[in-house]
């Protein structure tokens, strides 16, 4: 019960955070908090199998799926605070409150009596007991859900597939296009700059140095630059100096 009273406020706070988070990634992580807390509550309630499955399947697979899609769709993408539909926010909060209060009050009125507990059901261990019921009584539903999963996977493949509508450009075409771009727009003809002779790192956030010692902007991801997590050139210079002088 202690676990419950600790975790319950955490979960509610995380859920509310999910409601108010600006960036989708933050929302996903807060959802992860909620899910893991739920897993603990399952464990507390004599459901060790579900505890494991919750963490592995829900948090580990489903939530990761969410994160992948957020990555594909755009990490930058964020909700604006301004509500476009007039009066919708107020109405939603009001209705939500009414709904919630009704639900909570209704539930609170019910006297459930003392819980019977799962000691008897779990007498052989939770997992064998679950397996026993699952593969006897619910085997048909089990098979159907497996079919469902297969269908879902296939569906996802079909939906995400992109048909190539134009022929794939060959190496020669790509090269010709590159020269054309240089002629018309002055785009740099060669590949992106490598780390360089004096490069100490080939990390993503380390810019390549140009001959005159300045950082090459093209060698750094735009996103990292936007985040401001790029290492600066003077730092690198210090690094090099320490190394070369240290060698002697």
């Amino acid at each position: 019960m202690v676990a419950f009273w600790i975790l319950a406020p955490v979960m509610v706070a995380a859920a509310l955070g999910l409601l108010f988070a600006r960036k989708a990634v933050h929302a996903a992580l807060l959802l992860a908090v909620v899910m893991i807390s739920l897993a603990v509550l399952y464990a507390v309630q004599d459901a060790p199998f579900l505890f494991a499955v919750q963490i592995i399947v829900y948090t580990g697979a489903i939530l990761m799926l969410f994160l992948f899609v957020i990555m594909l769709v755009g990490v930058d993408a964020s909700d604006s605070i301004v509500e476009t539909i007039r009066g919708h926010r107020a109405a939603s909060i009001l209705v939500g409150l009414v709904f919630g209060l009704t639900l909570v009050l209704g539930v609170a009125q019910v006297s459930f009596g003392a819980p019977l507990g799962l000691d008897e059901a779990n007498s052989e261990g939770n997992i064998p007991a679950v397996a026993k019921i699952l593969f006897t009584r619910y085997v048909f539903a089990f098979e159907i859900t497996s079919a469902l999963l297969i269908t879902a996977a296939l569906g996802a493949m079909v939906l995400a597939h992109r048909e190539r509508l134009t022929p794939k450009p060959t190496q020669a075409q790509l090269a010709a296009q590159r020269v054309r771009d240089y002629a018309e727009h002055g785009k740099h003809l060669g590949p992106l700059p490598p780390p360089g002779v004096f490069a100490r790192h080939n990390a993503v956030d380390t810019p390549a140095l140009l001959p005159d010692g300045t950082a090459a902007e093209a060698s750094i991801s735009r996103v990292l630059a936007a985040r401001g997590t790029v290492k600066s050139a003077p730092e690198l210079a210090e690094d090099v100096k320490a190394l070369t002088e240290g060698d002697d």
């Binding site: 539909i85 919708h88 939603s92 209705v95 939500g96 709904f99 009704t102 009050l105 209704g106 009125q109």
Partner: peptide, 25 residues
């Protein structure tokens, strides 16, 4: 807007709940 329709759905669900409570108690 789908959200408005969803709001209507929720409001309906709330009303059903209230009705159930009223009948029950």
């Amino acid at each position: 807007f789908v959200r408005s329709y969803a709001l209507a759905l929720l409001a309906g669900a709330a009303m059903v709940l209230l009705a159930l409570l009223a009948v029950n108690f």
